[in-house]
């Protein structure tokens, strides 16, 4: 399979996935997207193996690393600031704002924990320590 065909199938699958998920949420069947997403991911992995050309190389991974770092920083900082602000605003009333703020703040904390675990792992892996 050529990379062009793979890209076309990928876009087609993405459109089906988005459409089906939107329809499922609107119609109140929130569980439908779960098997659809899992099936799509498995299908993509199987199709990717059939592509004879190089799909991703070191430049693609390098771009992905930079993009991930930027996304991590933006989300981490934004979630922390907005989260703490919403918690402070909704502190007295225990309103939805408080719950949203708490979720965002914990998400930021969770992201930081995952980042540092991954950092320690890769630092050990590439530092020659055993």
């Amino acid at each position: 399979m050529s990379f062009k065909t793979f890209t076309r199938i990928r876009i087609f699958l993405l459109i089906i996935m988005v459409g089906l998920t939107s329809w499922a949420i609107v119609s109140g069947n929130a569980w439908i997207p779960v098997p659809v997403i899992i099936a799509a991911v498995i299908l993509m992995m199987l199709l990717r193996r059939r592509v004879k050309e190089v799909v991703a190389d070191e430049r693609v991974y390098s771009i992905a690393e930079k993009a991930s770092l930027v996304a991590f920083r933006i989300f981490g900082i934004a979630a922390a600031i907005i989260g703490v602000t919403l918690v402070a605003i909704g502190w007295q009333s225990a309103s939805d704002l408080y719950k949203i703020g708490l979720t965002l703040a914990y998400s930021a904390c969770g992201l930081l924990v995952i980042y540092y675990i991954a950092y320690i792992y890769y630092n050990r892996k590439y530092s020659g320590k055993k």
Binding site: E53, V54, V55, A56, D57, E58, R59, V60
Partner: peptide
């Protein structure tokens, strides 16, 4: 060249 070097054409262009 991309095929021989095992990378994408976009990498060769870059």
């Amino acid at each position: 060249l991309a095929h021989r070097a095992g990378c994408t054409r976009q990498t060769i262009i870059a």
